[in-house]
Design a protein around this nucleic acid. Sequence first.
DNA 1: TATTGTTATACTCTATAACTATA
DNA 2: TATAGTTATAGAGTATAACAATA
Lengths: 161, 161
Amino acid sequence: MSSSSENLGRRGKSPHSGLDAQEPDEALSKQAWALLFELMSAHMRNFPALAAEFELSPVQAHVVRQLGEGPLAMSTLANYLSCDASNVTGLVDRMEARGLVERRSSEQDRRVKMLVLTEAGAALRERLLERMAEPPELIAALADEDLRALRDIMRRALRPQ
Amino acid sequence: MSSSSENLGRRGKSPHSGLDAQEPDEALSKQAWALLFELMSAHMRNFPALAAEFELSPVQAHVVRQLGEGPLAMSTLANYLSCDASNVTGLVDRMEARGLVERRSSEQDRRVKMLVLTEAGAALRERLLERMAEPPELIAALADEDLRALRDIMRRALRPQ
DNA sequence: TATTGTTATACTCTATAACTATA
DNA sequence: TATAGTTATAGAGTATAACAATA
């Protein structure tokens, strides 16, 4: 499971230095990742409680969030959720019963059903997103300098040109 | 060569706070948090699949990880999992049936049952932790400079003073 | 009386397999 | 025949409430 065995220019991963490396240092990325993971684990553990503030299950909260981008086919949603399509039926049943989403038959392909948020669903989404946008204490307490650096690093990570 | 896009003459203060220079900028922390959240969401979505590599449910993987620190009372574990104690019974039943953990009655208080990893459980934990320590592609691909900055920022976030 | 863990019950999420209605 | 969604079934995670053993 060694990833990319063609690190030819790699200066080896000497335990200490790695000062002149052009290539990412494996030990360094593990250190950074471990800390990032620690911080995020602590936060993600609260997600069920956060969703419950809106009387949503964690998965339902995720769906509400995804659905804001526009109508989605059931199968596409199953894909986003990394789950079997059969599960989406019951999931959407419950959300539809609560008046959060609507099924609309596609006119191009009448097998397909498109999901859209109802007005109530969209309103709830607004509140949910606002709540989720609140940074956890540990982040909010960082100095501006660190926040700016963090933002820029995340931008580079997410949009790797 | 990096940077420069944000040093617009503002010395990093919020748009209208004017004088007070030491307070973190709320908009900035939200930006950083949104990006961090985006990256971690993408990664956390794979966690069930990662756990499944070891034939563990996500929660079981979490338990295996926690249990490595030493024996835990059932109630303590329930606390870590942020769930009701009644759930831990069935959870541990299944893990015990697979030979991963053991219940041991505490001798100080015979109501309490301490959980410990079996030898097989500890071995599996080693492999699991190693797997979880692998940084996702988006992180591993960052430049050393960014990784070092990220690591240091996370250290400051996690150990405030 | 209070606490630890269990049992009973119910709901949600998840997977697999068989089915329907379209295509 | 193949695909989108449904239904049926089963297992796991979760919550609440009632209970036994122990403190």
